[in-house]
Design a protein around this nucleic acid. Structure first.
Lengths: 104, 104
DNA sequence: TGAGATTATCAGTCCATGCTGACGTCAGTC
DNA sequence: GACTGACGTCAGCATGGACTGATAATCTCA
């Protein structure tokens, strides 16, 4: 399908805790310890979600001694936003043209 | 949280079949029968997903005789795109400022 | 009104995924 | 080198949600 949205990426962001992590990282680059404090989630749980975000390319890591900083990659979010915008504008065009397939 | 994204809406769009429905409806207003043809999914299954999309406000229905047309609501997608864009730009600003919380 | 077509709802099954505890690994400090 | 703290991995459990078949509800047309 030409104009669509990457479902895998959307699925990664569909989890409340993961979205909270993303929102926090959009404000500040943080290490796991900070995220544990901010979210109240267990470290193990966070580590799992961070792995998912890493694998999806949403965040990237930067080791700092025995700490690991997590940084958000805005490109990914921008790309996703553009895909949604494109879908929306396509819908608007076809809505204006009133393109409706005839009942079978 | 001030700048974040509505997880419920994202979750609705995180399903491949639902995203396919949205993509199809972005091109054309269709009724359930058409969607069954296009997706190859069972009618029952589609009806379930359409209910989810309806409840989330992503699509709206328009009865036409004994058929039901489904139309995409672009506003919802635009709103979602804007939320992602906002998050991304916030991340860029903080990235430029190199705002990194000190290791504890 | 009765038959057929279209769509929605319900109950049940099954699988993906999120959460947790135990453990392993690595870096820094004594 | 031993200890401590930070972080990741793994296995097991539990829950949510996707899919299906049966059935109900609604509409059109003869």
């Amino acid at each position: 399908m030409l104009t669509s949205v990457d479902t895998d990426l959307v699925r990664v962001l569909a989890d409340p805790l993961r979205m909270q992590i993303v929102s926090l990282l959009a404000r500040e680059t943080l290490c796991t310890t900070h995220l544990v404090e901010e979210t109240g989630a267990k470290q193990t749980n966070l580590s799992n979600h961070l792995k998912v975000l890493r694998d999806a390319g949403v965040v990237e890591t930067e080791p700092c001694g025995r700490f690991t900083y997590y940084r958000l990659r805005p490109e990914v979010l921008d790309q996703l936003a553009e895909q949604f915008t494109r879908l929306a504008s396509l819908a608007r065009v076809n809505d204006a043209a009133n393109s409706k397939r005839a009942c079978p």
